[in-house]
Simulated assay, not measured.
Amino acid sequence: MADAPNKEPSLDAAVENVVGISSDFVAHAPLLVAGVVVLAATWAAANLFASVARRVLERQRGKRGFKDLLRELGVTAVWVIGLLVTAVVVFPGMTPTKALAGLGIGSVALGFAFKDIVENFLAGVLILWRFPFDPGDYIRLGDIVGRVDQITVRMTLIRQVDGELVILPNAALLKQPVNVLTDRPHRRVTVICGVAYGEDVDAARAVIEQAVAACDSIDDRRPIEVFAQEFASSSINFEVTWWTGPTPTEVRRSRDQVVAAVKRSLHEAGIEIPFPYRTLTFKQPLELGRADSDARGEPVGGD
């Protein structure tokens, strides 16, 4: 019974706190609503800016990646301004100078907390600004070969030739060698073709060159090169080089056509493409008496 008077003051204090918080919330509700309105307006302004910037930049000449970077930076600037205005509206005592100072301190803290995200963001800025490939180009990064679908300030989306989508952090593109397969409108392709040792090398070279020149998948403005390369184990090998389109599909299609044409032309010219030959050499003469006895019909076993 002695504890009852102590509970009543505690209950009264809790009720007063709840009433005070409710009163503060009601008093600040218009400011919160105004902040939500400002955020919605910022979202609409960012989307409108991105749409207008896309249309305007598409009519300008220049690297597509650089245009995307300008659009991304513009959208980011709209959001930064919108967040500053929201902070000033929701917190009346906040000034733009204080908000910027707080944003700077927060950015440093976030930079340490999200180091990889910041690293990928900066890498994305560099890729969009300076890298020599755009969406639509084919690249090779290690075992990944595919078309660049999209480049953002955080990641790059690559559609592999088998249809799979690979999402690469932008920092990975800066830290590893990247082969841009479609940097030029044509690529050089090389195959090895062998003819038998008994064939005339000059005649075989001429047949191979004519066969490659007759293919419509090659670039006839670039030279066709056929060089006798080496004395292989069973053949004289030729290095056959030509130029075709830069995409992986064009390279595969052209290689298929050239290999079929060369094989057909060598066959029609009577030039042999040999199978591997093996010559066996024995240090001691082979005894053929047993085989001779079999040929004469004499018994080979018993007395």
Rank of each mutant, 00 (worst) to 15 (best):
E209A: 13
E225T: 15
L173T: 01
T182S: 07
P185E: 11
D202Y: 06
D220K: 09
T182I: 02
E230I: 02
R184Y: 06
R188P: 05
E199A: 05
G194A: 06
D216G: 11
N179V: 14
G198D: 12
V207P: 05
A228D: 10
L174C: 06
A206R: 04
Q176H: 13
D202V: 03
D200K: 06
V191F: 03
A206G: 11
R184S: 13
A196H: 13
P223M: 01
F227V: 15
L174H: 07
L173P: 13
H186N: 11
E199F: 04
G194K: 08
V180A: 04
T182E: 08
L181A: 08
T190K: 08
A206L: 10
L174N: 04
Q210W: 04
A228C: 07
V191E: 10
V226G: 00
D219W: 05
V226W: 01
V201F: 02
T190L: 07
V212C: 05
A171S: 14
S217M: 07
D220M: 03
E209W: 01
P223I: 00
A203V: 14
Q210N: 15
Q229Y: 02
G194T: 14
A211Q: 07
V178G: 01
Q176W: 03
V195N: 03
G194I: 05
F231S: 12
D202A: 11
V195M: 01
A196R: 10
A196Q: 06
P177Q: 05
F227C: 02
T190Y: 02
R187F: 08
R188I: 10
R187A: 15
A196C: 06
D202Q: 07
P185R: 07
K175P: 09
I208A: 00
D220Y: 00
A204P: 12
Y197F: 14
A172Y: 07
V178I: 08
V212D: 00
D200S: 03
A206Y: 05
P185K: 09
D202I: 00
P177E: 02
Q176P: 05
S217Q: 09
V178D: 04
I224V: 15
N179T: 15
V189Y: 02
V226D: 02
A204R: 00
C193W: 08
A206D: 12
A206I: 00
D202M: 02
Q176N: 15
R184V: 12
D200W: 04
I218E: 01
A171M: 04
V201C: 01
C215F: 05
T182M: 03
Q176G: 03
A171C: 11
C215D: 04
D219H: 05
V212P: 11
D219E: 08
N179H: 10
V189E: 10
A228G: 08
L173E: 01
D216S: 15
R221N: 11
F227M: 10
K175R: 14
R188Y: 10
A228W: 04
P223S: 04
A213W: 01
T190A: 08
V178T: 00
E209V: 01
I208V: 02
E199R: 09
Q229A: 12
L174E: 03
D216I: 09
G198C: 02
L173K: 06
Q210D: 14
A232L: 12
D183Q: 12
D202G: 11
Q229T: 09
Q210L: 09
Q229E: 14
R187H: 07
L181V: 04
Q176R: 14
C193K: 13
H186C: 09
E199M: 09
A213E: 10
L181Q: 14
E209F: 02
H186Q: 10
A196Y: 04
R222S: 13
Q229S: 12
V195S: 05
